[in-house]
Design a protein around this nucleic acid. Sequence first.
DNA 1: CATCTTATGCTCACGGAGAGTATAAATGGC
DNA 2: GCCATTTATACTCTCCGTGAGCATAAGATG
Lengths: 318, 318
Amino acid sequence: MAKSPQKSSAPASGNAVTADLVAVLVAVTDGTPKIMTIAGGSALPSGPFEFTHRSLQTALRAWVEAQTGHPLGYVEQLYTFADRGRSGDAKSPHSVSISYLGLTREDRVGEGFEAHWSGWYDYFPWEDHRAGAPACLAKIIAPKLKAWAKAAPSPTLQRERWQRCAITFGLDDRDWNEELVLQRYELLWEASLIPEANHSRGREASVVPGKPMTADHRRILATGIARLRAKIKYRPVVFELMPAEFTLLQLQRSVEALAGRLVHKQNFRRLIEQQELVEETGAMAADTVGRPAKLFRFRHAVLAERAVAGTKLPLSRT
Amino acid sequence: MAKSPQKSSAPASGNAVTADLVAVLVAVTDGTPKIMTIAGGSALPSGPFEFTHRSLQTALRAWVEAQTGHPLGYVEQLYTFADRGRSGDAKSPHSVSISYLGLTREDRVGEGFEAHWSGWYDYFPWEDHRAGAPACLAKIIAPKLKAWAKAAPSPTLQRERWQRCAITFGLDDRDWNEELVLQRYELLWEASLIPEANHSRGREASVVPGKPMTADHRRILATGIARLRAKIKYRPVVFELMPAEFTLLQLQRSVEALAGRLVHKQNFRRLIEQQELVEETGAMAADTVGRPAKLFRFRHAVLAERAVAGTKLPLSRT
DNA sequence: CATCTTATGCTCACGGAGAGTATAAATGGC
DNA sequence: GCCATTTATACTCTCCGTGAGCATAAGATG
């Protein structure tokens, strides 16, 4: 950054950069959260921004619709990265990457495209706590983090490092906080446990499970997951990921899939119904085991009725 | 946006844009929230991004420190705008504006700079509800919005418009939601009550009180205020705006200044103290009326101790 | 019919949040 | 010195949201 416009109206050409879009496109199928990927699952869909569109959002929507044949339900900007190190080559034109989070219902990808859907826990196995804390946490991650903490120069720093690890990963009997996705990824990066980190070259063995991605795409994905996990608690965005009609259990499973943790069934239903977020369709679910469930649909009216349209979910502490 | 990198690696020069930074720099003095402005208060500080810095944040920090002589406490990215209409001229190089929110303690500006501080309620007089709903809301804004709603083509649309207005501005006995700063601004824009809106040219009279700004700077400011009002409720960021030592009342006044509404004093203190966010310095406040208050300082340790470091504030409903 | 599975209704206890009351400690005016 | 005023600070009380568990209903399957 420089000075105020009056002081330095540097010629625009002097600061020319390229603008890229990177998208975290989420869908949930059968209780599995998925993201759209390209290049065999090693990258998020991305490309240069074309200024033929009125805005970034419009551009993203058009692109996704062209790719999947389905409109993008909900779009939200995530973050803009412009670090110098991004392009690698210092001489190459600098690039600004603007990342977006998009939610969609269908997971079918249009023909002729190499995009497909990957489960997001493939990239973050330690984030799925639906069946309790994953084994890799206690068996691999915690020990490696402990070793990293021990490697700090002074006892004080060692303690501080471990405290950070324990808080961020819910170790030492602390509560697991599902929203700290990005913090956890960055901590692992700092501890050289992420293959994408340059400084882990040469000791690839000391790395944590989870599929890596090109450049900083996994970090962007972590940002998207964190944002979405936070958002579902106070905005009715889960419904963007649901089919038109669904049972309350399906809805609950989707929430649990995103949050990576289970919720109390009765309380979940109580909250959903008392907020009048859904209405019965009258039909019942077919092809089910157990007592058949009523089908519901999202009451789109709530978006107009309420300002904040809170979707309170029983995800506070548990 | 285009296709995946593999499909179209368009030459970077074809998508060259310029990158600008825009900053919403906030300070609170004597219960008045202020923002740094230039050009006589009609613009936010902004300028081209220089890639000599490692990252956008670094660049912004360096710039602010150079301007004010004081380090920037807290920095957070707000939003990136890249709408085509922004630069006006379709032929000119497109510009991507990356906006930041920054919190600082001191409001002294370095010499030789034209930046100074303006009260943020000068730009949004309808946002200050500390002394009850401002007069301009009932006297000017509500009637104009009502007229705009009435101007909708169908009765249904008229009702929908008014419902949006009532929800967003807390009319018709609805609760005021202080976080909807951006929604309110955008609604006023849509209703052609904002002078910055192009379509209000020629009928400048039908406009709502509040100082306008260059381009979309007032929208960016609204985004920043909204973000900050949301943030103070769950992160201890207020302390970035406080002097090293302060009384609990001063802290409360700062929160109220930002939120634009009053809080219950006893409950405020209970929350602050039970969260162990502050510690006594041992000294008492001097130069005060009434019983002298203890001085407190922020317990920086909380940032390390807790992951989310919640600053719960009594700002839920009231 | 017994059992399994899921749906759905109801209750209960705890704790947090909003709001009010009461008292303490300083200042300034008379 | 007394009183009004202002601010600080300690308690209390009630309501309700939330977590958690119990109980029952309604299907399928053997």
